[in-house]
Design a protein around this nucleic acid. Structure first.
Length: 426
RNA sequence: GGAGGGAUGGCCGAGCGGUCUAAGGCGGCUGUCUUGAAAACAGCUGUGGCAGCGAUGUCACCGGGGGUUCGAAUCCCUCUCCCUCCGCCA
């Protein structure tokens, strides 16, 4: 949620930004009109309420002094004032709800440094790390590698749950578990994050806080009976940890890391990303979430991104960092960088992480504040998050990068201690 | 799933429908005293909206929503959450 004051004071600027974001439906003008209407009604109703407060007190006083007639006369007057207040309050509530709804559908503003572009074709590769591995045999895609090794089972996944589900078996399942445990340890021990184990099922209010609702309800799984929703990412519960709180002075920065499964309905077009484990309805992810002071926002984004990149470097898998242009920016993000690992088997760059700075956009929706100093006024915190990293795709990169001519897969050095010393999956 | 009891400021805890502008205590801040501290004493101590350059004014908030009333922390309805007991259970 934006601060309405920004729109009120710089409507033309906000309209320009919406155009840059390619968001033609953002109800900026509607919000502006509703805001004006709201303040008009508010001034009216408050004046009447102030009158009622004063006169009601006088009625009490008159009653105590036994001046019934005067009290009754005043009562009659106040009944009319009360009716008027009720009328205005009802109107105000309608306007308030409409304004809230409009504000909820306006995306965050991009940071000044974000390149302007119409869609993902205008994203910018800001750096590349490592050299794509050379093979003296034709590298296979992971679905061939995995099935041959008996660690990936697509047919049974479909039998159990339908398309876009798969089963990991044996050392495949263990490789994923090793990656999870190792990534958590790196972020906790070397990058200073503290671990969180959150619920995987949350209320609508929680999804609203991160901006997933109301706009993206289609992508979520939901239990209708209890109105609980499966999380699409750990970002949702972890960011909302401090919803409706004022963090005491000295609390920031806070950095959490959480491993969770993620559930996404995604009405995916048939034929796109169908093979392999690249895109499923259920996947695992290690996620970093930060709460910081506004002044530190951009520095913290750089640090978060580096923490995510560090995982790829330690796995010795080549990657590139892509900066999203305005047209490809997510709804809540003010700036966003993706990390893409090179998968030599299927021959594509795989998005394994997405690191974003949300400025105070999520904090405003989720009401997350902090006190800069003891006794100081609360301010909205800045929130950030980034995958560190998303699993099925890191699995793909590992399987395809570390494959050997005989169909076996070498286990990256850093993971061997987490695999019970296994050096090769064969 | 069944039965009962609760929700009040940073925390504990009072609160006949009308000086509630929410008692009292704890904690915190400031001051007096002191070489310093403690103690004692005094004062202050929530969040947000709107108007205003500002001083300030005003409105709202006693778990959420709705109702009764001239007036609601207080009465009524409803929802959520917490606690106790029973049942079930990894």
């Amino acid at each position: 949620m934006l601060d309405i004051k920004i729109i009120r004071e710089n409507p033309e600027f906000v309209r320009q930004q919406m155009a840059a974001l390619q968001d033609l439906n953002a109800p900026v003008d509607k919000a502006l009109a509703l805001d004006e209407e709201r303040r008009r009604l508010l001034a009216q109703v408050e004046e009447l309420k102030a009158l009622r407060n004063v006169e009601s007190k006088r009625i009490g006083q008159l009653m105590r002094e036994g001046q019934r007639d005067e009290a009754d006369a005043l009562k009659g007057e106040m009944t009319r004032v009360g009716d008027q207040i009720k009328l205005l309050d009802d109107q105000l509530k309608i306007v308030d709800d409409q304004l809230f709804d409009a504000m909820s559908r306006i995306p965050n503003l991009p940071l000044p440094g974000v390149p302007v572009g119409k869609d993902d074709s205008e994203n910018i590769v800001v750096r590349t790390w490592g050299q794509p591995p050379q093979f003296d045999f034709p590298p296979l895609p992971h679905w061939d590698i995995g099935e041959a090794l008996g660690i990936l089972d697509f047919e049974r996944g479909v039998k159990l749950s339908g398309s876009r589900f798969y089963v990991l078996k044996g050392l495949g399942a263990r490789l994923q578990r090793a990656l999870i445990a190792w990534m958590l340890d790196v972020h906790i021990d070397d990058h200073g994050y503290s671990e969180v184990y959150p619920p995987y099922i949350v209320r609508a209010q929680t999804l609203f806080g991160t901006g997933n609702l109301p706009k993206f309800a289609d992508n979520l799984y939901r239990d209708a009976e209890d109105d609980l929703w499966l999380i699409p990412t750990a970002e949702v519960p972890v960011t909302n940890l401090y919803r409706d709180e004022i963090l005491p002075a000295g609390s920031l920065p806070i950095g959490h890391v959480a491993y969770t499964p993620c559930f996404r309905r995604e009405k995916m077009s048939a034929g796109k990303d169908v093979r392999g484990i690249k895109r499923g309805h259920q996947f695992d992810k290690v996620e970093m979430v930060k709460f910081v002071e506004p002044e530190q926002g951009e520095a913290e984004l750089a640090s978060l991104l580096d923490n995510a990149e560090d995982i790829a470097r330690r796995l010795d898998i080549p990657y590139r960092v892509v900066q999203m242009c305005t047209g490809d920016l997510a709804f809540s993000a003010a700036a966003k960088y993706d990390i893409e690992m090179w998968a030599p088997g299927c021959g594509e760059w795989l998005e394994v992480s997405s690191c974003s700075l949300f400025t105070d956009f999520q904090a405003r929706r989720a009401n997350i504040r902090y006190r800069p100093e003891e006794g100081a006024k609360p301010r909205y915190a800045y929130t950030l998050n980034g995958s560190g990293l998303a699993l099925p795709r890191v699995m793909i990169a590992v399987l395809e990068t570390y494959q050997q001519p005989d169909g076996s897969v070498r286990v990256p050095d850093v993971l061997q201690p987490y695999m019970g010393g296994v050096e090769v999956i064969r």
